[in-house]
Design a protein around this nucleic acid. Sequence first.
DNA 1: AATGAATGAGCATTCATTCAT
DNA 2: GATGAATGAATGCTCATTCAT
Lengths: 208, 208, 208, 208
Amino acid sequence: MTPLMPEGYLETRRRQIIEAAVSCFSRRGFHQTTMQEICKTAGLSPGAVYNYFRSKEDIISACAEISEKRNENIFVNATAEAGDSISAFDSLIGTFFSLAKQEGIYEAVRFDLEMWAEATRNERIDEILQANKDAIMNHLINEVEKGQDEGLFNNALDSTAIAQVLFSMVLGLEVQIASNPNMDVDAYADVCQSIVWGTLSGGEGSSE
Amino acid sequence: MTPLMPEGYLETRRRQIIEAAVSCFSRRGFHQTTMQEICKTAGLSPGAVYNYFRSKEDIISACAEISEKRNENIFVNATAEAGDSISAFDSLIGTFFSLAKQEGIYEAVRFDLEMWAEATRNERIDEILQANKDAIMNHLINEVEKGQDEGLFNNALDSTAIAQVLFSMVLGLEVQIASNPNMDVDAYADVCQSIVWGTLSGGEGSSE
Amino acid sequence: MTPLMPEGYLETRRRQIIEAAVSCFSRRGFHQTTMQEICKTAGLSPGAVYNYFRSKEDIISACAEISEKRNENIFVNATAEAGDSISAFDSLIGTFFSLAKQEGIYEAVRFDLEMWAEATRNERIDEILQANKDAIMNHLINEVEKGQDEGLFNNALDSTAIAQVLFSMVLGLEVQIASNPNMDVDAYADVCQSIVWGTLSGGEGSSE
Amino acid sequence: MTPLMPEGYLETRRRQIIEAAVSCFSRRGFHQTTMQEICKTAGLSPGAVYNYFRSKEDIISACAEISEKRNENIFVNATAEAGDSISAFDSLIGTFFSLAKQEGIYEAVRFDLEMWAEATRNERIDEILQANKDAIMNHLINEVEKGQDEGLFNNALDSTAIAQVLFSMVLGLEVQIASNPNMDVDAYADVCQSIVWGTLSGGEGSSE
DNA sequence: AATGAATGAGCATTCATTCAT
DNA sequence: GATGAATGAATGCTCATTCAT
């Protein structure tokens, strides 16, 4: 009588649509992507897609949520098991920059840029990004303060500001990858690590 | 019959349209801004606007060009008259971050985000951004290499990578200002300066 | 395997759907009511409903048929057992206007208006309404002619026209109830009765 | 410079669209008429139509307003110059029923039915109809009361109810014309006149 | 040059109906 | 019989662009 749908059928469909949408949005942006494109990419009819989402707006929000959740997890997990401050940052840098070399990063980066632009005029997206950014920043600030206690960072500097600058290294990398997918991420990571280790400055000249 | 237009009349009109367009694009993005909005903001009729630009696409490109030219000038001028490397970076940081506190920065930042997203799918915009980025990066790499010669930066690190990370501090700041226009730019600038001066690290120099 | 359905099961289901549909149609009109609404109201799935009706069109027709059958019965029964003409009309008026005060009249009236509008462009509905109207009019004309024979109505007037005007009193009341469900039906009925009794005119009989 | 549109150009266009819409709505109803049909009938593109009306809803309202204004004027003008009560009603009946025989009445009647149905679920339409109905009823009640003073109508009856019944003669006629455009309006008018004159009743038997 | 009404292809969304389960 | 996810043609509406004035 009841046509038993396989367990998790609906959730799978939602995922399928979201993945199709993210792919479209990355390639063409939110407002140049048509619903038809999303439907075609997802292999569904418009009617079917609208069984899972009430509007294109909702699809955009769902994509943003998933994307941000993913970004947040990376940060949180990367510092989870670390002991002292310096190894926490090493772990963070290692994890993050290895991700930046994975396949699919270009799509993710483009999607992030699209979200950043959209967030300035779309309150829902802004809230999602804000929540994500807050979580990451709290994490970072916490680590920075530990680092200041342990003598890794200068106590005279504002911990929030240090965290913001460190965060910028990630954000800025995304912007630069977007315009040059082939950039040398390893060299970039080395510089970031030098900054944390205090070896960016000339004197000591650590010959690699 | 045709009245002599004041010198530069055409260029003035173009500017008027571009400024209106930048304002609209910043607020609503390229693809949610309608030509009607641009016309209204510029105080002109659609027909008039189309006398100066052949398409919306052209207006977007013109806006991007002007915006990037402005960004580039900031960088180039800021390092123009400096002597040694450290004062060059001090000048750069001083100029840049004072700009980041000027009125109008929010509009500029939003426009930049919009361009970064658009560049990934619009070749003309990409070229404009690429050219600008190349100019800035060349400048920065040059300064970094001078810094390495002068012992300011570690010789073992890739000069391009250092420049990229320094550039990220600007790009990342823009992203963060977009989501929080009230952030403390001065504290952020202090951290950037510490990185250049080599005083980010803990032990010594807690004298601000 | 197939369980014996209780006697009249099919007809019961049809009724259930028709009643749900009438309720929806009254509230939202034929063309703003969706099949989904009807299904939900009937507590059935679309697939189930389409087992009993081949199309929305068919449901509309079935609703119209039931509604008109009901209207016709009221008229026919109201004059069935009457003796002379004047008591026939008294009975008619009494029955009809007591119905007009029953609960549910508002829904019925709205459905009637909807049908009248629909009949002008839907042949099936038109036929159903026409048949009903013919039945009622024949009844009325018959009574009017009896009334003319008994001296109740002026012989010089066309019996059909008299019947039409009397019918208008019912139709017009429906239109007025639709726009004002609280109107004073009793006072309206008094005037109708006065017209039949010939006491609408001024001079004499102000004794109610 | 200003491309002088002929005087009243815009108003003419609005009229043109409204007339096209009324024609479509009469034939197919509000909700089965598509914007494309209206555009085609008006000889305009969708974009052009949407320069004059912000939505289909607005077109419906504008049509309703014009239609009701017309209906109201008929009533008001018909009684304007009359002297005593009986000649006022004669004038009303004469004017109204001559209109009911004019070409175009069928379209008008169908539009009225459509509006009555729509008014039960569309507040804007309801307000328009209500205002019109109030104006007409006030007029009618006023005349009825004069008639009661002059001995034309029974003082014992509620003047509002009398007016409502008289109004029903018009409304009911519309319903009946809709289902039978060829009905004998003259005979119907004669009966209405008899009711006002008090000669509907049998006794006097005015042999015509 | 300027105007702004007009164009019409294109968009997001709906909904009567179907059919695999 | 019953379910409800899927279909896809059709709808109301938008907007970059044109052109008669």
